[in-house]
Amino acid sequence: MSIYDIIFYLFATITLVSAFFVVTIRNIVYSAFFLLFTFFGVAGIYVILGADFIAMVQLIVYVGGILILILFGVMLTNKITNVQIKTGTSQIIPAAIGVGLFAGILTATLVNTPWRKIDNSPLFPTTQGLGLMLISEYGVVFELLGILLLIALIGAASLARK
């Protein structure tokens, strides 16, 4: 077991344990803060895989953006109005179907992807290659995702104005 394996298992443990607590713990603020550690662990795994840009974007978007928004929402509803919001279970059957489908897709991808094994080759920065691919090969998808985000933004703003 090399030192990279040890680091990988460390980050994997952080991710899995905190993800487990995110869904099981009753206090919703604790859930949100455990999500921070899940994102951190995933970013660490990206770094070990050599995906430096993805790791940094993971931190900027998920920790710096989405997590903060979740915390804002939770805190504004939880403490200020003195109503303790706890996580509970409802709608078990639709949730089970959704999770089952998602797990099936993940497993199918895991089995069918032709994984490449890289042994001890030095890792290079991926930013330039990623940028070129986003602009050329995946240009349309990239723009469509941008439009999707814009629609979500406008939708959120118009909902908030009501």
Partner: peptide, 13 residues
């Protein structure tokens, strides 16, 4: 690191 300035922004999260 190659992404020094991006890392700095990420760490502030």
């Amino acid at each position: 690191i190659d992404l020094g300035i991006i890392f700095i922004i990420a760490a502030s999260g």
